[in-house]
Amino acid sequence: MIEQYIVLGLAQGSLYALMALGMVLIFKTTDVVNFGQADMTMFSAYVGFTLLVGLGWPFWAALPVVIAFGFLLGVAVERLTLRPAKEAPVVSLLIVTLGVALMLNAMASWIWGFDPKSLPYAISGPPLVLGNIIITRHDLVIFVTTIVLSLGFFALLKFTKIGTAMRAAAQNKLGAQLLGIPVFRINMLSWGLGVALGAVAGVLIAPLVFLDLVVMIFVMLKGFAAAVLGGFTSLPGAIIGGLLVGLFESLLIAVPFELVNQLKETLVFLLIIVLLAVRPQGLLGEPIHRRV
């Protein structure tokens, strides 16, 4: 029985991990916490809804388009709203991301209305049975996508020139600029990739919940908690944080006390507060000193 909850928790946690990975990537390279991640994810998931339900596209065709949409959205946010404000203090940039979030929210309600939408599973069909564990095909897609994207990201950052330049620019902007590394283009790329990761999480999580204008706020909060748990500057930390948050949440459902089940959200955040009190830099993070 407990194995079943572990599998469910890891599937849920994978989505938090993708969300956290996107936010950490943006924060690491640009010093900005993207408070608009939820609404960017929500908007991308609605684009997925239009493709999958409105136009009847199969999942494998819609996913790349949603990823591309998320990427372009992130690029546009950096280029059109953050770069013109580049001299502003970081706190103002956070508010810019909130402003973008409000705009996207209003646009989504205008385009898709207020009724919750339901999205189809990535792959339909009967669940797979492995011993006494049942895995839905959709959860399997979630696992595979998360693993592929995480490994892809580490390879990009570790082995490619542009990925190394992303890490370099994150560590020392001035040093990077003086070597001819185009820091603004790197920021734009980070935003594109970060929002695209959220878009993937959104289109995978939407079939498990009803998609509306606010549901992604809760996913983002868990992703944020996962990122904080992992240290907020560590990409592996974001993944591990996401999986732990998902796992813990799922195991709380397994506890045979109704009160615990109902308070699972509260308890997840409580655990994180306790953990950060013991280890303020998160699981894999380093103490950071940044301009505010």
């Binding site: 020139k161 190394t164 330049a165 890490r167 370099a168 560590q171 020392n172 001035l174 040093g175 990077a176 003086l178 070597l179 001819g180 590394i181």
Partner: peptide
């Protein structure tokens, strides 16, 4: 090419990666 005051290296990148970025 400007070697700035305070050197402005990439502290968490390896020596090799720092040099690689020089030829970016």
């Amino acid at each position: 090419v400007h070697v700035p005051e305070g050197r402005q290296l990439f502290p968490d990148l390896t020596v090799k990666e720092n040099l690689w970025m020089g030829s970016y």
